[in-house]
Amino acid sequence: MNQATPLADQRHPLDPEVLARVQGLALRASRVAEGVLAGLHRSARQGESVDFAEHKPYSPGDDLRHLDWRVLGRSDRLIVKRYETETNLRAMLAVDFSASMTYRSASLSKVDYGAILAATLASLLLRQGDAVGLHLLQARPLVLPPVGSPEHLKNIVELLQHRQAAGPTRLVAAAESTLAHTGQHGLLVLISDLLEPEENWLAALRMLAARGVEVMVLQVLDRDEVDFPFEDPAIFESLEDDRRLAVYPQGLRQAYRREFGNWLQSLRRQLAVPGASYQLAVTDTPPHRPLIQALHQARLGLRQRG
């Protein structure tokens, strides 16, 4: 008999604490995908039909294979999905697998969280018939070229689940591989903490967006990195190199928050260009929320461009 813990009962089913207890990335991604879809639909019912671009009411002659059975089952309405896949979208999911992504203060590390985001997006995109590729950003990068087959999800999940995050990273490699594998009308989803000393990747992404590639940046951060809540004096050690610093956190907290906040603002500002979108995802929030936000922003970007 499966006994749910009181904690699980009180929390959102997609809360990171709950997700951490779900075995297997595929199952986690599946649940989050359900949440994303539900969120998108609920959003539509709340009067945002103007954004309902991928669905239309059924009219005689439409392909019944594209009928949305889920909507039919819930609302008795005949809705047909209009797939953007028909525009030959090739998406590349670039996931940061550097050592800095291993940090965790809660149940999920940043790399765990990023893997869930990537697997969910892959699931959603493949379900729409898009071709999805995967690029694990590490010192020795690993690239799966985009494939449109639903079975490809298994390969993506396998890779995300079993690859160890380690070493430094080069984010600019994501732009390079996207150009190589998707062409000018592809989609790049960059999932990273973006904590890279060199900032040439930003210019690369802006250039990519200017060339017509849809760029979606999902910045994954831990709550500790945002709030810096430490109290006791400690020696802070870098996860990617041998830098260390003895710090009295109370004295630095205010300045750190200000500096970090400025950086996030700067990122948001620099990625506010046509064809690019930016969404912050903190690992203690249910992952479907930043995904929904990101998908909304991405559509907004397409419309601006078109």
Binding site: E237, E259, W263
Partner: peptide, 20 residues
């Protein structure tokens, strides 16, 4: 007796420390 704390955003800590 200071404990060790792994941290990813070291760049910011170092920058803030330098400034302050």
């Amino acid at each position: 007796r200071t404990r060790r704390q792994p941290f990813a955003a070291m760049e910011f800590l170092l920058r803030v420390q330098r400034q302050s």
